[in-house]
């Protein structure tokens, strides 16, 4: 399994191919469309992340020391961003998720989506994913 840093560089490389914003967003839209589906049983209000203009459902499970994320959104660009986050965070160890700095977001020119005023939930998504990682880590330590 690739490390978080390696996946980040891979994504930065992919985005380096694009000269303008349109290509970049077209790619994000493609990524949105190819996001693996979340199980319907997890697409429930309890899994909704608040603070998003679009709806975002996030589900996490813990298998063999790794956190597995699945997610969905009703907006495609948001789904594209989720896809990136899942590529990076899913199947990683809790500590690696908690400590990830995610510099790739500004490197690929999506830092505007990090602004709280965009309210597309990227920030809340990252927070929620890290929180899940922390919860699993604590659970494991207490066992």
């Amino acid at each position: 399994m690739m490390k978080i840093k390696e996946i980040e560089s891979q994504i930065v490389e992919e985005f380096d191919n694009f000269d303008d914003w349109m290509d970049k967003y077209t790619y994000l839209i493609e990524m949105g469309k190819s996001l693996p589906l979340i199980e319907n049983e997890f697409k429930i209000d309890n899994n909704l992340i608040s603070g998003c203009q679009s709806k975002v459902w996030l589900h996490a499970s813990y298998e063999n020391g790794k956190v597995i994320f699945t997610a969905d959104s009703d907006a495609i660009i948001t789904k594209g961003i989720i896809n990136l986050l899942i590529r990076i965070f899913s199947n990683q160890a809790p500590d690696d998720i908690i400590n990830a700095d995610l510099n790739f977001i500004s490197e690929i020119g999506l830092q505007e989506h990090l602004s709280p005023t965009r309210s597309n939930g990227l920030l809340s998504m990252i927070k929620q994913m890290k929180l899940y990682a922390l919860v699993f880590k604590t659970k494991m330590q207490n066992q």
Partner: peptide, 21 residues
């Protein structure tokens, strides 16, 4: 069926200020 957030994100990139939500 395009989500207003998706549309708004692209419209913004063309220098047009509209509100979505």
């Amino acid at each position: 069926d395009i989500h207003p957030f998706d549309a708004g994100t692209i419209i913004d990139k063309t220098g047009i200020a509209v509100r979505t939500g």
